[in-house]
């Protein structure tokens, strides 16, 4: 029996984000929102652990303008209940603020053995929240997990690192940050999503968490984000395959894309 907390972030669906035609700034507010892909992998992994070992899976979500329907999708996947903090003050939250808020929320939930989260978020890709959370609780954390198994009261994790897979173990409680390769998240059918309205979603006010002004102030200030405007060069090569390969190779070397 392992009780697991899964942290979910609601982000803009980056596939549907369009840059502003003039400023080239991504119009995040106009894109539909979704649960960050990595976090769905974390939830799926938690559910698989639950299916194998039993226990409870609690989803936690902090941010601004949290959409109930997306939380219900998580419950439809199989989470037992959800805790939500939705506050406009969290709109500019960075990894620091998010981790502080999540930690304060998790402290209210009670007993847990494992925290699962995505290794990064779909929109900002900062890779901060998981490790920061572990530091706050002063427990071990393992990132870039591509496989995880509970073993002798601890957790054994396969970590994807440059140049190979590291296999590591940690005692519980711990924080595990998972990558996209770890699983394919199950897709809740619409019928399940409707039925998930029977599961509890607890709304917690930011003010109830007792966070200080410092804890709620982002450490990072984003100055500007712009879409890259890339024009393709549309070079057409003609000739026999052998010649074409030769010409292509020359161009690649010329452009410095391949070293001779």
């Amino acid at each position: 029996m392992v009780d697991i907390i899964v942290c979910l972030k609601q982000t803009a669906d980056v596939n549907q984000v369009r840059p502003h035609p003039e400023t080239l700034e991504p119009q995040l507010g106009q894109a539909p929102r979704k649960i960050s892909d990595f976090d769905l992998n974390a939830l799926e992994e938690a559910l698989r652990i639950k299916e194998k070992h039993g226990g409870r899976v609690v989803a936690v979500c902090v941010g601004h303008d949290i959409q109930q329907l997306l939380i219900r999708e998580a419950l439809a996947m199989g989470a037992d209940e959800a805790y939500v903090v939705s506050d406009p003050r969290l709109e500019k939250a960075d990894g620091l603020v998010t981790a502080e808020t999540l930690a304060a929320l998790i402290k209210k939930i009670g007993k847990w053995d494992l925290i699962l989260c995505g290794e990064a978020s779909l929109d900002e890709s900062a890779y901060q929240t998981g490790p920061r959370l572990a530091e706050i609780f002063n427990i071990p954390h393992i990132t870039y997990a591509v496989r995880a198994e509970l073993e002798d009261g601890g957790i054994k994790v396969w970590k994807a690192m440059e140049g190979g897979i590291h296999v590591v173990k940690a005692s519980l409680p711990a924080v595990l940050a998972v990558g996209l390769e770890i699983n394919t998240p199950r897709l809740p059918s619409l019928l399940m999503i409707r039925a998930a309205s029977r599961k509890p979603i607890h709304e917690v006010k930011l003010s109830e968490l007792g966070l200080s002004e410092e804890q709620l102030t982002p450490a990072v200030e984003t100055l500007q984000v712009k879409a890259l405007k890339v024009e393709r060069r549309r070079i057409t090569l003609e000739g026999e395959p052998e010649e074409l390969a030769q010409k292509l190779a020359e161009i690649l070397v010329q452009e410095g894309l391949v070293k001779k």
Binding site: P32, K34, T184, P185, R186, L187, P188, L191, M192
Partner: peptide, 21 residues
Amino acid sequence: LTLEGKLDKRKTTMLTNLSRL
């Protein structure tokens, strides 16, 4: 099978596309 939702990547993607796009 679909009610349970444990589908592979491509099926999941198609259904997600239908629900989002």
